[in-house]
Design a protein around this nucleic acid. Structure first.
Lengths: 114, 114
DNA sequence: CCCTTATATTCCTTGACAGGAATATAACCG
DNA sequence: CGGTTATATTCCTGTCAAGGAATATAAGGG
């Protein structure tokens, strides 16, 4: 639930692989294990972490437990990212301006760079 | 540089704090340490990780080493996030539809979306 | 040059976590 | 109920990363 849990959940490459796999659709544990080259207990444990981070939800289907992505935490990540995205766009702008200048070397220097 | 380095760098809460602080502007190590409640060596070590992940770049100013965010990895994160964002938007749509239906239980189901 | 400031690195200890093997639990089927 | 499939949990072990203390390096100032 906490922000920290989300980050630590996604810090593991196997768990990112699981998440990527689940993007294609819900899957039972067995398929996830096979699809990611994990042992069954391994998959189970990773899924637990993902579940506790809220990234995944489970639906019981007979003996199978079908796991699916929960979009909410993704939104949280997106929100976290937002302020930085601004920074990134600004820097693209700056790059654009710099390339622009490169075309016409002479002229008044805009502002001291550093 | 690798994707993994980026995730593990951001997995640590102190490092996320540093990144958040640097969002407000470049800072020398000392200020970062103080601003995040870290020891000086602690800050130095975390900054190293961030640097190796490409999240931060350094400019030398006399004895001080001024650290600033590098926007590129943020863009990488954004790219990673993109496919999931679609999922998230779809789910918002679905929620909207469901609420819609709840208003008028009977009636012909709306046309398949896509 | 010595001294001070600013930062980096090393060493060490501790705690978290991943993976494997074995076992426990749960749901279904005859 | 006994057996079978599907999944979860436990125990153990090794690895790795974080934090603290001490020290090294670098740059500047008198």
């Amino acid at each position: 639930m906490s922000d920290a849990a989300l980050w630590t959940a996604l810090a593991d490459p196997h768990r990112r692989a699981i998440v990527a796999l689940l993007l294609e659709g819900p899957r039972p544990v067995g398929e996830i294990a096979e699809g990611c080259g994990l042992s069954q207990p391994g998959a189970s444990k990773h899924l637990r972490v993902l579940r506790e981070a809220g990234l995944v939800r489970v639906r019981q289907d007979a003996q199978r437990r079908v796991h699916a992505l929960d979009p909410a935490p993704i939104a949280a990540l997106d929100a976290w990212l937002a302020p930085y995205r601004k920074l990134w766009n600004e820097s693209l702008d700056a790059l654009g301006r710099r390339l622009d200048q490169a075309d016409r070397p002479p002229g008044p220097p805009p502002a001291p760079k550093d």
